[in-house]
Design a protein around this nucleic acid. Structure first.
Length: 866
RNA sequence: GGGCGCGUAGCUCAGUGGGAGAGCGCUCGCUUCACACGCGAGAGGUCGCUGGUUCGAGCCCAGCCGCGCCCACCA
């Protein structure tokens, strides 16, 4: 880790610091953040030299955003999650690399550039392939840095100096090698097969890129003649595909049609004789129980067709129009128009028996939004079952752990039923297939084949094919580089749920096959952030919230904190309140630090030097918070990590410790050296603890801390110190806090003026070291004598007796006392009841019964004091 | 159709077997020398419904009601 030019421990600088600190009563993210980002980037801290092995180091490969994309809430959340892990482990002293890069994102990027061309009045066809691809690279040069800048604004400590792109030369070479190797292993093959054709992008797409959408259709019941007499009625929502029917199927057990099986039906309009076949797939209770079979345009029919050796006729082409095989007058018409004509013709023949409204789901392209046209096409496929087996084992035996647990089974189920993957895409932007043809010959190899007359396959690979290599191709694979040695396998893969199959599963398969090891040990599937009203966050709905806007409004620390605090094992609604909470936290920490830095004695460096019970208490609480943070991060429980940090800073450090420290700190005459050292030490520990969550404000404060050198982000911090856990101090201070709260509540309710000290006497145990603090924080004027009490306030371990002389409403005081007495009596009755229950005493664990007894005793003492 | 998950304070959510919590919002009070993006004190909940297990259930089990997401080839 490179040393950096941080705060030099030159005391003269502190004069400048003091003025700045005194004047800045609020933390100003917009002023601080750019400065801090620059220092981080210039330090080289995020760019470790590769050394050692992955077992010693810590690494994460960022899910590569689309190269022309911009930061959305999902990126911001995932960036925060990964950065917390990265910063935490970097501060544990590990060599830590967060691999950065972008994805060429075939369809998405090509579509964007095509749209830009259309706006210029031209098209990719006019430009030609070569020129078009140049245009995309130009587009990338122009827009490719947006997302990087945005990640930097978030504070993400990615290795920006070592950026990857899935179309870089080295990366592309890795992709080609994988394709060729898989081909040679027989796992990649070319086939004429029914694919999901996306008329929008004019390309085949994989099953995973298809979504189902509900539509209202008409279900037509159409009567077919059977040769030799008789007829059969089938139902369809796509009458135009009748032209491609090559069979009629019934269920083998369906007695209504038993005599039809084996005979020949006649397809209307085209008068094609086709067999009537029996297949288990047919549902006898749907429609008439007879099904038209169209292998050329329906996935189920395709399977049935292959099973029964049926002819495969295509009547719809890749342009979405009826082709020549459809015959006159349909050829050339868009499929939907052809449908109307077919219905009309059937109607004319009196073949439409019924038409009924039919609500169902149809496949739609996730990319273009257009309805999928299943059609038979010559494409490249990848057989997955062989690669899936070891990837299933890796998750089963825990070499890859998936969090939350529920996603594990989802992964296994999908992998168990994995199907071949159509990897070729009819696009220009991407990795062109390393495949050449000459007549009937096919050549697959890293270099173009020798000889004349070869033409290269124009198709490119599915973007996810190259993404699947991300964790190792980014590190130099197939070369055995020091980076690959040092950082593969990576530690954690954090991602959204929707690409668990699309990406994560395929990385595991490819990692095992080509890099010889799982690509990561833990998969964290983070929440999907919905709009505050529960709808999907989307640009088109107008429900999107731009994380960069939020950073500008509230600061990056606030956004990070908010997102982490929101995150959960399920989907969550975006909570502006949580972001504000993060902003308050940053501001609070800033001001608490001002208090400490401006109040301590000059020339004192941070060091643990506890003098009082609260000094020991805060030290102990810091350790507990460290442990909490470590546990939460181990379990990927980011919301509790963030909220726990908030609770510590607000609820313990600021509300109590700093308040308790004030009299000593403001006592100019006293020797405040130990206190100063201790206070600074607690501050330093807090900054270290908080830094992974809110790196900007903590880094900024760090630069003002006496004796602090370099960057906080690069500091290797001590782990928790068990010796500083102090149960006794914690119990005492807890008791004191409870007492102060009780006394303040009493004051408020009986109308004691806020500034007024109340004469009082302690009648309770357990305040040996805290009485002075209790008296000060509750504004009591403590006395030994003073005669009979005029009122009494219950506190843990007894009561505080209020003596004559204070101004308050005695009637209200009595009411309050009565109320409390009744409460205590109720509790006592309950405890007595419980302990009188033989079942409880006999069966409950001894420590539970004991605790109940102790509590009862405490309550009885309290009642006596009242 | 299968799977996962959720129903707790006005809102967003913690809490997985022994005294119902947080943030925001709301009410009251406070120019207390770090912070008014502050401090202090409060009000507010038959923990979806019904049954069961248990000495004891917000938490475990079953059923029901409501909601979300994922997967899936009923024409």
């Amino acid at each position: 880790m490179a040393a950096t030019s941080g705060f030099a421990p030159d005391r003269r600088l502190r004069l400048v610091s003091r003025e700045t600190l005194e004047s800045r009563k609020r933390f100003e993210p917009s002023e601080v953040e750019p400065r801090i980002v620059r220092r981080w980037l210039e330090s080289g801290l995020f760019s470790p030299e590769p050394a050692g092995t992955a077992a010693d180091n810590y690494s994460i490969a960022v899910p590569p955003p689309n190269v022309t994309g911009s930061l959305h809430m999902g990126h911001a959340l995932n960036g925060s999650v990964q950065d917390v892990l990265i910063r935490y482990h970097r501060m544990r002293g590990l060599r830590t690399k967060w691999i950065f890069g972008t994805d060429h994102a075939g369809i998405a990027t090509q579509t964007k550039v095509e749209q830009a061309l259309a706006a210029e009045g031209t098209s990719k066809e006019e430009l030609g392939r070569e020129r078009f691809i140049e245009r995309v690279w130009e587009w990338r040069a122009e827009h490719g840095s947006t997302i990087r800048d945005q990640f930097q604004r978030l504070g993400a400590s990615l290795d920006y100096r070592d950026e990857r792109f899935t179309l870089d030369e080295d990366y592309a070479a890795a992709v080609m090698k994988v394709f060729v190797d898989l081909y040679e292993k027989g796992l990649i093959y070319r086939d004429r097969y029914l694919v999901n054709w996306d008329p929008g992008s004019r390309s085949a797409i994989s099953d995973l890129e298809v979504v189902q959408e509900e539509v209202q259709d008409v279900l037509y019941h159409v009567r077919y003649d059977v040769e030799g007499g008789g007829e059969v009625t089938v139902a369809t929502v796509r009458p135009e595909t009748i032209l491609a029917d090559t069979a009629v199927a019934v269920h083998p057990g369906d007695e209504r049609y038993a005599d039809l099986v084996g005979r020949t039906a006649v397809i209307p309009l085209v008068n094609r004789p086709v067999p009537v076949i029996a297949d288990e797939y047919v549902k006898p209770d749907f429609g008439s129980g007879a099904l038209k079979i169209t292998p050329g345009h329906d996935p189920n029919d395709f399977d049935i067709g292959r099973k029964h050796g049926l002819a495969e006729i295509s009547v719809i082409g890749e342009d979405g129009r009826m082709n020549e095989a459809a015959g006159e007058p349909y050829a050339g018409l868009p499929a939907l128009e052809a449908r109307a004509h077919v219905v009309e013709a059937l109607e004319a023949e009196g073949r439409i028996v019924a038409r009924e409204p039919h609500h169902h789901e149809v496949p739609v392209s996730h990319r273009s939004g257009e309805r999928i046209e299943p059609l038979i096409s010559l494409q490249w496929f990848m057989r997955m079952d062989e690669l899936a087996a070891p990837a299933i084992d890796a998750v089963r035996d825990g070499r890859v752990r998936i969090h939350p647990e529920g996603q594990r089974q989802v992964y296994l189920d999908w992998m168990d039923n994995i199907r071949p993957w159509c990897v070729s895409r009819q696009l220009w932007w991407g990795h062109q297939l390393p495949v050449w043809y000459r007549g009937e010959e096919t050549y697959v190899g890293l270099e173009a084949p020798e000889g004349e007359g070869w033409t290269r396959d124009p198709d490119v690979l599915d973007t996810w094919f190259s993404s699947a290599l991300w964790p190792f191709a980014t590190l130099g694979w197939p070369r055995d580089t020091p980076a690959l040695q040092a950082f593969y396998p990576t530690d954690v893969l954090s991602t959204a749920r929707d690409i668990l199959f699309l990406w994560v599963a395929r990385m595991i398969m490819m990692g095992l096959e080509f890099a010889g090891q799982v690509p990561f040990h833990d998969v964290y599937v983070h929440s999907v952030i919905q709009a505050p009203d529960g709808r999907r966050m989307s640009k088109s709905l107008g429900t999107g919230i731009d994380p960069v806007d939020e950073i500008e409004r509230h600061g990056a620390d606030a956004v990070r904190f908010g997102l982490l605090a929101m995150s959960s094992s399920q989907d969550v609604r975006y909570s502006p309140a949580k972001v504000e909470q993060g902003q308050q936290l940053a501001n609070k920490l800033w001001n608490a630090s001002r208090f400490a830095l401006l109040g301590v004695q000059e020339d004192v460096d941070p060091a643990p030097r506890p003098e009082t019970v609260e000094d020991r208490w805060i030290l102990s609480r810091v350790q507990r918070t460290k442990r909490m943070m470590a546990d939460c991060l181990t379990e990927f429980d980011f919301s509790h990590a963030a909220l726990g940090l908030y609770d510590f800073v607000y609820g313990e450090l600021c509300d109590w410790y700093l308040e308790m420290v004030k009299p000593r700190l403001y006592d100019e005459g006293a020797d405040r050296e130990a206190l100063s050292a201790h206070l600074l030490f607690v501050l330093a520990e807090t900054l270290e603890l908080a830094h992974p969550v809110i790196p900007f404000v903590t880094e900024e404060i760090w630069s003002y801390l006496p004796g602090a050198e370099g960057l906080l982000a690069g500091r290797a911090v001590e782990g928790l110190e068990p010796a500083w856990i102090d149960e006794e101090a914690e119990a005492q201070v807890q008791r004191a806090m409870d007492a102060v709260r009780a006394l303040r509540g009493w004051r408020d309710s009986v109308g004691v003026r806020p500034g007024e000290a109340v004469p009082a006497r302690l009648a309770a145990e357990g305040y040996e070291d805290t009485l002075e603090q209790v008296a000060r924080l509750a504004r009591l004027d403590l006395r030994q004598d003073g005669g009979d009490p005029v009122a009494s306030v219950a506190v843990p371990g007894g009561a505080v007796e209020i003596l004559a002389g204070g101004a308050f409403d005695p009637a209200e005081a009595d009411r309050r006392l009565d109320k409390r007495r009744a409460e205590v009596e109720r509790e006592i009755a309950r405890g007595e009841g419980k302990l009188a229950n033989e079942g409880f005493v006999g069966k409950a664990p001894a420590e539970v019964v004991e605790a109940e007894r102790a509590k009862l005793e405490r309550l009885r003492r309290e009642l006596a004091e009242l």
